[in-house]
Computed example of a mutant assay.
Amino acid sequence: MDTVDAGTRAVMLRDRGNRCQWCALRGPPRGDAALHVHHIEREPSDVAEDDPVNLAVTCRACHNWFHHRPTRLDAPVELTEADMRVLLPHDVLLLKVLDEVGPAPFRDVFVRVKVLLSETAVRERLWVLMGVDRLVAGRDEQLVDQDAKTGAWGFPEDVAESARGYVPGDRALALQRAEDELVRRALDRGCDRELVASVFGVTRRNTFHKQYRASAYAFPLDEFDRGGRPAGSDDEVSEGEDGVPVWNDGAVPDGDLGRVETWGGEPDEMYGDVSELLNGDGSE
Rank of each mutant, 00 (worst) to 15 (best):
T3D: 09
A6M: 02
R9F: 10
M12C: 04
L13I: 00
L13A: 07
C23N: 09
P29E: 07
H39G: 00
E43M: 07
E43G: 05
E43S: 06
V57Q: 04
V57A: 02
H68P: 00
D74M: 11
D74Q: 14
A75T: 11
V77L: 13
V77N: 10
L79K: 04
L87P: 02
L87E: 08
L88D: 15
L93D: 05
L93E: 12
L95E: 04
K96L: 11
V97I: 15
E100K: 14
A104S: 15
V113G: 01
L117W: 08
R123K: 08
L135K: 03
A137I: 05
R139K: 00
D140S: 13
Q142C: 08
L143E: 13
T150M: 05
T150W: 05
G154I: 02
G154C: 01
G169W: 05
G169P: 05
A174R: 09
A174K: 02
E181M: 15
E181G: 11
V183L: 06
L187H: 03
G190D: 09
D192K: 14
L195N: 01
S198H: 11
V202R: 05
T203Y: 05
A218S: 08
P220F: 07
D222N: 10
G228P: 06
G232D: 05
G240Y: 08
G240N: 08
E241C: 10
E241A: 15
P245Y: 05
W247L: 15
N248D: 15
N248P: 03
A251I: 13
V252P: 02
D254V: 15
D254H: 14
G264K: 06
P267W: 05
E269C: 06
D273L: 06
L277N: 09
L277C: 00
L277V: 01
G282Q: 02
